[in-house]
Amino acid sequence: MNSIIQLEHIDKIYHTGEVDVHAVRDVSMQIGKGEFVAIMGASGSGKSTMMNILGCLDRPTRGKYLLDGVDVSQLDRDELASIRNQKIGFVFQGFNLLSRTSALENVELPMMYTRTNMRSHEQRERAVKALEIVGLVERAGHHPNQLSGGQQQRVAIARALVNQPAMLLADEPTGNLDTQTSIEIMGVFQKLNDEGITIIMVTHELDIASYTKRNIIMRDGRIVSDTAVANRLSAVEELRKLREAQQAVQLAS
């Protein structure tokens, strides 16, 4: 299996005030193509820092990070921005869509910063295709405030997909959503993963993590556990169960 991510002895130290904060200590790991990984841990465990480093938003203090075969640990700001643009699709907890901008234009946003020349109708086609994948093409003209939380997160996923990145990086993607919508979003991720897209997700919710294939648990900046998920949940199955339960409640009343 060729690896998308290869970390070798990564350290991250923040120099804030008098005390140095050692957020990540000597982390080495590999994530292969087509994997679906959840990184878990309590707050302060270093998982957010890991997320920032994996997402090329931040650089490690020490160590080597190979992303899709490219050593990104020593790149400058602009080079990292181009890597993010080409290889990483972000999905955030707070959706982070541009307000008063249509769903379609939100999805087109990463292509605005793609250095290769692309015709605007080509951009539009790609954005529409990405919205089709998340099943929101009929809402393309809606603004974020006209969409539900789940729909907004789908738009964000479409935006993450539009440049055909090497991986999706999701930071607590279900943190702002209710249970049913969370399962729906995990269903979208599972479907994308089935089609071969690598997904890395940071979460602190165990049940959400059990929709993935591999769970990495962090504590005090180190990886303390890295296991394959034994009883993997299927979002389709769980949604069916949830609906049956709701129907049962309705019938009973």
Partner: peptide, 16 residues
């Protein structure tokens, strides 16, 4: 600021 963060996250350079 948040909009700037989003744009940077999806690949905007400082000069953009």
């Amino acid at each position: 600021t948040r909009e700037i963060g989003i744009r940077m996250a999806v690949g905007a350079h400082g000069r953009d």
